[in-house]
Computed example of a mutant assay.
Amino acid sequence: MSTDTIRAAGAVLWRDDDGTVEVAVVHRPRYDDWSLPKGKLDAGETVPAAAVREVYEETGYHAALGRHVSQVHYKAFGRPKVVDYFSARALWGSFVPNSESDELRWLPVPEAAALVTRSLDRDVLGAFALVPADLKTVLLVRHAKAGKRENWPGDDDLRPLSSAGWRQAEAVRSLLPLFAPGRVYAAPRVRCVQTVQGVADDLRTSVRREVRLSEEGYWPDPDAGLVRFLEITGDEGVPVVSSQGGVIPDLVTKLADIGGLRVGDVPCKKGSVWVLAFTRPREGWSTSDSVVGWPRLVSAHYLPSALPAPRP
């Protein structure tokens, strides 16, 4: 992406009102238009962080991010502009008129689409409405950098993060709370655990070791690893799962195949995060059932780094 590109982020902020999904649309007095909350990234800010901040500044609501809904491209002031939109569940807050937005309306999606001024916002709402709002989010993390294997004299399972890896781990610690995680899992290698230990510490929980999601535990029986991952997905709350580069591409590809989702190549840089969104499993589901009742992957969004992008 060109260094001349303006990066921005926003969200479809939603709530459940007695079984009806409503989304927030704001009126911006500066432009006299109705819009989804969005805005430009601040210096040193990631795209997800900007989405959460802009939602709060324009609506007054704290929110938990979910799936990536769409990316919009257009020209602004003669420069290319890219806006990433996430689904965002309203947690708490209240709207107070301000200089950026002087009115907020909670509306069902069709009414919100009729109200927004820009056709691009209607396209985003259309993409949001393609799948249920209340999906299960899973944050699949590849462990951060741990130096070269040939330079570590001990047991490879004990190879720790490098100084660059610790910087990545701190970035993961800052990024993942934007999605409101509640559980933390890791392949039982030191570098996998260290990558998400800060997230677990902030949640005041422990990192649960998952042998099936390590390379040596996954490949003897990939189907068992897939089943274990789906069991983690089906439990309550948003899980964080830290695994390895020899597992993640195959796992995401298998999940996409089951869900009928096209993902193509599955990149997996160290310190990267896959934001996976699944339909909620059928009540009382079990992995012994037909795959029809399993959580089904409907969105897979790749964040190549938890670190903010360098500014031009």
Rank of each mutant, 00 (worst) to 15 (best):
residue 2 S to H: 01
residue 4 D to H: 12
residue 5 T to H: 01
residue 11 A to K: 06
residue 11 A to F: 03
residue 13 L to W: 04
residue 14 W to G: 01
residue 14 W to C: 07
residue 14 W to T: 12
residue 18 D to F: 00
residue 18 D to P: 00
residue 20 T to I: 02
residue 20 T to W: 00
residue 21 V to M: 12
residue 23 V to T: 05
residue 25 V to E: 07
residue 26 V to A: 10
residue 29 P to A: 04
residue 30 R to S: 15
residue 30 R to T: 15
residue 33 D to F: 04
residue 36 L to C: 11
residue 38 K to T: 11
residue 43 A to C: 04
residue 43 A to S: 14
residue 45 E to T: 02
residue 51 A to E: 11
residue 52 V to N: 11
residue 54 E to F: 10
residue 56 Y to W: 13
residue 58 E to D: 13
residue 59 T to W: 10
residue 60 G to N: 04
residue 62 H to S: 14
residue 63 A to F: 06
residue 66 G to K: 08
residue 68 H to D: 08
residue 70 S to K: 09
residue 71 Q to V: 14
residue 74 Y to T: 12
residue 74 Y to Q: 13
residue 79 R to P: 01
residue 86 F to R: 09
residue 87 S to G: 07
residue 90 A to F: 10
residue 93 G to C: 12
residue 99 S to V: 14
residue 100 E to F: 09
residue 103 E to C: 04
residue 103 E to W: 00
residue 104 L to W: 13
residue 113 A to D: 02
residue 117 T to Y: 08
residue 119 S to C: 01
residue 121 D to Q: 08
residue 122 R to Y: 06
residue 124 V to N: 07
residue 127 A to D: 15
residue 134 D to K: 14
residue 138 V to T: 14
residue 140 L to T: 05
residue 140 L to N: 05
residue 140 L to R: 07
residue 144 A to L: 05
residue 147 G to L: 00
residue 147 G to Y: 02
residue 150 E to N: 12
residue 152 W to I: 02
residue 153 P to N: 09
residue 153 P to D: 05
residue 154 G to P: 02
residue 155 D to N: 09
residue 157 D to H: 11
residue 158 L to M: 12
residue 162 S to P: 02
residue 162 S to H: 03
residue 164 A to G: 09
residue 164 A to H: 11
residue 167 R to A: 15
residue 167 R to V: 15
residue 170 E to I: 03
residue 174 S to E: 13
residue 175 L to H: 11
residue 177 P to T: 10
residue 181 P to W: 14
residue 184 V to L: 07
residue 185 Y to R: 15
residue 190 V to G: 01
residue 190 V to C: 03
residue 191 R to E: 02
residue 192 C to E: 11
residue 193 V to W: 03
residue 193 V to L: 09
residue 198 G to Q: 09
residue 203 L to G: 12
residue 205 T to G: 03
residue 206 S to Q: 12
residue 210 E to K: 04
residue 213 L to P: 05
residue 214 S to N: 09
residue 216 E to S: 13
residue 217 G to L: 15
residue 224 A to C: 06
residue 225 G to C: 01
residue 227 V to K: 11
residue 227 V to I: 15
residue 229 F to N: 10
residue 231 E to V: 07
residue 231 E to Y: 01
residue 237 G to L: 12
residue 239 P to F: 02
residue 240 V to W: 08
residue 242 S to F: 07
residue 242 S to G: 04
residue 242 S to C: 10
residue 243 S to K: 01
residue 246 G to I: 05
residue 248 I to Q: 03
residue 249 P to W: 06
residue 251 L to Y: 10
residue 251 L to T: 06
residue 254 K to R: 15
residue 255 L to M: 06
residue 255 L to G: 01
residue 261 L to N: 12
residue 262 R to P: 00
residue 268 C to R: 07
residue 268 C to E: 08
residue 269 K to R: 12
residue 270 K to C: 00
residue 270 K to T: 00
residue 270 K to F: 01
residue 271 G to S: 08
residue 272 S to N: 04
residue 276 L to M: 13
residue 278 F to K: 05
residue 282 R to I: 14
residue 284 G to N: 12
residue 284 G to P: 03
residue 284 G to W: 13
residue 286 S to I: 08
residue 287 T to Q: 04
residue 295 P to Y: 14
residue 295 P to T: 11
residue 298 V to N: 05
residue 303 L to Y: 15
residue 303 L to T: 11
residue 306 A to T: 12
residue 306 A to E: 14
residue 306 A to R: 10
residue 307 L to I: 09
residue 309 A to I: 08
residue 312 P to H: 02
